[in-house]
Write a protein that binds this DNA or RNA. Sequence first.
RNA 1: GGCGGUGUAGCUCAGUGGUUAGAGCACACGGCUCAUACCCGUGGAGUCGCAGGUUCGAAUCCUGCCACCGCUACCA
Length: 517
Amino acid sequence: MQKEDEMPKFYVTTPIYYVNQPPHLGTAYPTIAADVIARYHRLFGQDVFFLTGTDEHGAKVAQSAESVGKSPKQFCDEIADQFKKAWGALNISNDHFIRTTDSEHERAVKWALQRLYDGEYVYRHKYEGLYCVGCEQYIPKSSLVQGKCPLHRKEPELLTEECYFFKLSQFQDELLTRISKRELKIEPVQRENEVLSFLRGEKLQDLAISRSKSKVRWGIELPFDRSHTTYVWVDAFLNYLTGIGWLWDGEKFERYWPADVHLIGKDILRVHATIWPSLLLALGVELPRKIFVHGFFTVNGQKMSKSLGNVIDPVFLAGKYGVDALRYFILGAFPFGQDGDFSLQRLEHRYNADLANDLGNLASRLLAMVEKYRGGIIPTSGKEMEIDLNLRRLAERAFLEADKCFREFAFSEALARIWEFIRGINKYIDEVAPWSLAKKEEQRERLDMVLYTALEGLRIVALLIRPFMPSTSKELWNQLSIEEKLETQRFPRALEWGLLKPGIEVKRGKPLFPRIK
RNA sequence: GGCGGUGUAGCUCAGUGGUUAGAGCACACGGCUCAUACCCGUGGAGUCGCAGGUUCGAAUCCUGCCACCGCUACCA
């Protein structure tokens, strides 16, 4: 067993969310996943850094701010605050919340731009694009509808202006090598294939990274040409570096970089697999180890969108069903790397079946029996019979298998393993039938043993679910009246069988998950 | 058009060559009575999208077709 200070560090990120939209289910998804990952690694005593934040520059933000009569900064402050509050409500344990308008970030971005410029990775060139006067920005061909801007129903004009370009094209071979050698891992593997086939089949074009200030005022100035602001890429991607102190806290940066995993949505895979590593190569910074691509949600079979009015508010759901129920459902009901269809009906089904019936009722029935048969006092364990041993083995297997799934980010699988164990305890109780033992005085010791065994199983459950459901974990821990602080429990040691102390009075509480009618 | 993905029980999904294809939920029946009308057991149920092919043997490999979806970059 390694000592804590010898454990490897772990750095996990979410995308930074564009402030044009308040938090919703789509942004909560990778955030909850990252939180679970962070909590899991902390359980092993690892030094974890978990970063999330907001992306705040750009013409769209400036426009949105103006439309509600606010300054861009003020507007961003408010939305960033909404994100922070939302993540607080979802029990997100991020170590830092980065905003691209943070002064440390802006300074670092300028420094990076200058360095790219000095290193001749950036040059001035003509940019030709379709400009929509209504949007006051260039719009990509892909978003045109019959050649017109979908928002303003107007054909955009073809404009040419001088911009600064990043020499993305020169990194093509290097990217191909790094990704195919898996120095930069992209998972699930289908996503890696997508990227590789793209890199093999198409030529990377150099990338425009600035706009004239007249077009995008709300942005970071180029240090070598103050009439331009940098456009999206350099600004946004560098958050992964500046969020852990790059150029302002060298010690911290050295400690945590490279990122162990960037969680991203499939919509931003391509840019993360091309622009981002190229920028790092140009800056001479090590590449992240892994990019993991999660799926998207539809809602009742439909795409989630503002115009359909089916945007799901995770904070509302957490309020209605409980944070842990939401976290359990989001990660338990959908394979993380695939798309999934969200519905309240499914949420309520899983809630009743898994949380209320399996887990909640288990705690309830078990603690009730301890109260009824042993005055609430945790009994001593006794002679172990085969059936007891089997439950113990089931616990060991549940952890080993869940751990394996976990390290592949197969959260729904990991939870399924844990739930197999929970069902195993229910089954154990049925088979040993403590209510029958209680009727016979000569079975006194056997009843002690049986209750102890089941309680010990419940203690293990409390630990196993901890990264996914921190509040429930804590509540179970309290109901079992365990003296040691939950926060000090470390995997895998705390999972050893038999650590539950006898002689202590349990505190049965209200049902953990009241059934939904 | 190109590249890629998906299509397995009513639902959500496992299952990448080998005994009668699996899980959870839902449904039916039985058991129990400690518990949140809960838990435990048993069961029905599937031409594994369609058609060919390779093989002693295919949901699993190959070809074609059908349906749905994603990407085809410089809006995140």
